[in-house]
Simulated assay, not measured.
Amino acid sequence: MTSYSPRVLGPLSPNSAPHSVGSKWKPATVGADASSVYKLVRLESMSVYWNPYCDRGRLDTEEAQEGWRALMADTLNTMAVSEERLEFLVKPLSAKLKVILNLSPERTVPHLLADLVLQDTSVQLSRQQYLSLVHAADSFSRMKVNSQYRKYRPTVEPHGNAAKWWKYAYTCIVEKTIRPYSWERIKEHRRRYREYRAEYLTFLEDPDQKVELLDKLKEMEDGLDATGILLAREEAKIEVRGL
């Protein structure tokens, strides 16, 4: 398995449709004036699979991209994808979910009751699945980090475009670790901080304007970090209390 190989994963639940039943959990029709609704959901052969490696050739074809529904149906019928058997994390299990919806306007009774009966099941994790999960988690972590630099990222391949990628690295460092602490940025941050603090003070002192100020405060919060917002609010609260 390589870190660039496609992963195939997902849940399987061939039969999981809810059914209307009566109070004795037998099939029934719900009347228009019913005060309670009973639903029974049977989960038959529900499972979770994760194939750490799948043949890229079949998945990259034009036929697979246009007929992905047929490919998924074929996977369900054969329990295999690209002629490779599904590797289950959670082996097929059966469960029964009973749900009671109370339509009464009274607040003294629960409006939703659920009872799940789950039969014995087994969970297994192979070495290849574990490594694939680690690679996937690392990929998502890198995507999260890269999201803040995406606007600086070149649209060309690194090979043959070294200058653009070096500029990309330079820009990321400068914009995130140097320019935020320039005098111009500091003054701008302090200006936004003082304006937000003043608006929040008005928000606390004048209840009649709370609705109008909420939208303005939310808009101003986009230009501040969480620490600045919390500090500005605490300063405003202290001033209101006269401390």
Rank of each mutant, 00 (worst) to 15 (best):
N102L: 14
S20K: 11
V8Q: 10
P92N: 08
T78C: 07
P158S: 10
S16F: 06
P158E: 04
G57R: 08
F140N: 00
P154M: 08
D120Y: 10
R150L: 09
E84V: 13
K26G: 09
A95R: 03
S5R: 10
E221M: 07
P11V: 10
K144W: 08
N146K: 00
V8P: 09
L131C: 12
V145H: 06
G22F: 06
A198I: 05
E87D: 14
M46F: 12
G228N: 12
G242C: 09
E62A: 10
L103S: 06
A95Q: 07
L224P: 11
Q65Y: 07
N161Y: 15
K176L: 00
K39S: 14
V174W: 06
L231F: 06
Y49D: 10
N146Y: 02
E157R: 11
K187P: 01
L201Q: 04
D206S: 14
N15L: 04
G228V: 05
T177V: 02
A198L: 08
R192M: 05
I173L: 01
L217A: 02
V156E: 09
I178K: 02
S36T: 12
V48N: 09
L133V: 03
T171H: 00
L230Q: 09
P52G: 13
L40E: 10
S36W: 00
L231A: 07
D208Q: 15
P207R: 14
V174Y: 00
E84D: 15
V30G: 07
L101V: 13
M79S: 14
A114Q: 09
L71P: 04
R85F: 06
T227R: 11
L101M: 15
P105A: 03
Y38W: 12
R197A: 05
L231M: 12
A232Y: 01
R85A: 15
K96F: 03
Y53W: 13
A95H: 05
I100N: 00
K210V: 01
P18Q: 00
R179P: 00
S20M: 15
K24N: 15
L116K: 00
L113W: 01
R56S: 13
Y49F: 15
L214D: 05
K164I: 03
S94R: 10
E188V: 03
A169S: 02
Y196I: 00
K237F: 01
Y149M: 01
S36D: 12
L125F: 08
Y53S: 14
E63C: 01
R150Q: 13
G67V: 05
P154K: 04
W183R: 11
D225K: 11
R69F: 11
G10Q: 12
L131G: 05
L71T: 06
K164S: 13
I238K: 14
K39R: 09
A232L: 02
V211K: 03
P6C: 15
R142W: 04
T177P: 00
E219D: 10
Y130K: 12
G67S: 07
